[in-house]
Simulated assay, not measured.
Amino acid sequence: MKDGHGRTIDYLRISLTDRCNLRCIYCMPEEGIDLIEHEDILRIEEIQRIVRVATRIGIKSVRLTGGEPTVRRGIEDLIGDIVSLPEIRNVSLTTNGILLPKMARRLREAGLSRVNISLDTLDRRQYAQITRRDRLPEALAGIDAALEAGLDPVKINAVTVRSLNQDYFDFAKMSIERPLHVRFIEYMPVGESAGFDGLGWGERDVYPSEQLVADINARAVERGFLPLEALDGASGPIGWGPARYFSFSGAKGTVGVISPRSRHFCGDCNRLRLTADGKLRPCLFSDREFDVRAALRTGGEEAVYAVFLEALGEKPDDHHDRVGTERGMSQIGG
């Protein structure tokens, strides 16, 4: 189905939990957040029913997020159930990678097709600063485990923050020797109004993607590499979405940029978001939510279908440069 602005909506992002084994400074306070009560979290079987209803409005792709989705019990059963739906083309996962060494093969066997691993730095000290946990070796082992399990594509998501002074060229080089797709995502101050801005980051920390690519190319030339070459849409990895992709000559993977601030892609948005407590959000940057959990528990699947239709009709045309939302990223699901 199409939303009120003529966009085909076929992608649903589902937050399985607001819990996480990291405390990233742009996502969650060091002491954590007020966690959702157990009875308010969608049960695995409820998520299964909601996805089944979502296929009726044309949902074909599902991404599981958190918090950290791998800490949710029953995730393998959920993946298997979603994959069994004939309308679903793929199920993917966004994770910090820490538990993948133990879980990647099981997730693949359950039907998971691809994975995005969130990793903002390759420097161990900086990783501990950003995540407030010294677990970089485990995250890197998670990348290895994803590749070994046959997940394809394996994407690395790095949030770019100007004041962190991350080594973007080192990240980009990861795409040369291994089939990794490194994506740089412009920092978005989501949840800033609720105090999730970590070190006081703001608009000055948004690192425009065009400048980022130029800076990577300058470093590449200094180090004796040819600059990145732009790829067309057909040459990118599965799950093209809003990213623009580039590659080094002869590289096994790609380098991508996602530009929600400097180059809006709202006109091509194809997604809805479901929070762990069962709220359907038409837009990441809007606080408008529709209560799917209540509809399911009091009215069944037909009531859920009606909520999906209502949310489709209320999906905004653009985020209109809104900064900050009432809920933080760990509570929304990204």
Rank of each mutant, 00 (worst) to 15 (best):
K2L: 01
L22R: 06
Y26S: 05
I50M: 12
I57H: 11
I59E: 01
V62T: 07
T65I: 02
T65H: 07
G66L: 01
G67M: 08
G67K: 09
P69H: 09
P69K: 08
G74R: 12
I75D: 09
D81W: 11
I82R: 07
S84L: 07
L85F: 14
T94M: 08
L99E: 08
R105G: 03
R108K: 15
S113E: 15
S113N: 13
L119D: 01
R124K: 14
R124L: 00
Y127T: 01
A128I: 00
L140R: 09
A141Q: 14
D144N: 10
E148H: 04
L151N: 09
P153Y: 02
Y168P: 02
F171A: 05
M174I: 12
S175H: 03
S175A: 15
I176S: 03
R178A: 11
V182E: 13
R183I: 10
F184M: 07
F184K: 07
I185W: 07
G191W: 03
G191Y: 09
G198N: 11
L199H: 11
Y207N: 05
S209A: 15
A218Q: 14
A220Q: 10
A220H: 12
E222N: 06
P227Q: 14
E229C: 08
A230Q: 15
A230P: 14
L231Q: 11
A234I: 04
P237K: 01
I238M: 08
G239V: 09
G241M: 04
A243W: 02
Y245C: 03
S247L: 01
S249N: 13
K252W: 00
T254R: 13
V257Q: 05
S259W: 11
S262R: 13
F265K: 05
T275R: 11
C283H: 11
C283G: 10
D287P: 01
D291M: 03
L296G: 05
E301G: 06
E302Q: 14
A306G: 10
V307N: 06
H319K: 08
V323A: 08
S330K: 01
